[in-house]
Amino acid sequence: MLPFDFDYYRPETLQEAVELYQKQAGQGKQVIFFSGGTELITLGRIDLAYVDAVIDIKGIAECKIIKSEGSQLLLGSALSLTQIEEANPFPLLTKVASEVADHTARGKITLGGNICAQIFYREAVLPFLLADSQLMIVGPEGIKTVQIHEIFQGQLQLKRGEMLVQTATDRRFIEAPFYAVKRRQQWDTGYPLITLAALKIGQEIRVAISGLCPFPFRSAELEAHLNRWGQAAESRIAGALSVLPKPILDDVEGSAEYRIFVLRNLLYDALSVLEGSRV
């Protein structure tokens, strides 16, 4: 139950959505794009979110697309995680997404909403970080396509009134061998302690991590250590652990030291799986 009232709009085109946003914001209103809407609904009821107007983007065709175009896979931002899992166009994404929240909730949570959410984890972004995906963004200045690393630093750096429309991912990455695991405080449900996704492209191993820091990330420095082929896995991992971004989360899910212990083992597993006998 949300204790405040807001206006609800459901545009059918990108242009309409952008205009609506500008108009509302122009009137000094607190306005948001509303995709799955789970963030507003769950944070609003405990006074951690407030809006005057929401723009539901689920009626916009571009945001609901699942399509291969040339060598690219296009995924609309308003697809629910369940829809993506059922269609399974990107197995690594399916794997990572299928660990977010729970199955029923994923019928409401959307790809774009998870990537743009306030929550630390935003696990659905990990596969796109690994795959150097392109993001299609629409805003007052029109549509643009940006390489994810240019615009995702801990979170998606959108300007006011901009919205994520689609992701575009090269087939090469979709077919690459991968490894993904979500480790929780205990057993099979709950937030991540560490979620690790890894991809092998040619001889290069890439990893992206959520749950370690208050943001998901992929780090070139860390990967450089992991890819020092001559060295034993232990020392490559030790090197990787020496260049972790800060801060390391230290909360009810787990202490910072324990998270690093978990990460060390998961990195080891990722290397074993992706390198086969090489480790």
């Binding site: 205990q186 057993w187 099979d188 449900t189 709950g190 937030y191 909360d251 009810v252």
Partner: peptide, 16 residues
């Protein structure tokens, strides 16, 4: 109490 929701206070779930 830092975990006053069922998201963070976790009873057993199906399959666990």
């Amino acid at each position: 109490v830092l975990n006053p929701q069922l998201r963070t206070y976790r009873p057993l779930r199906y399959g666990e």
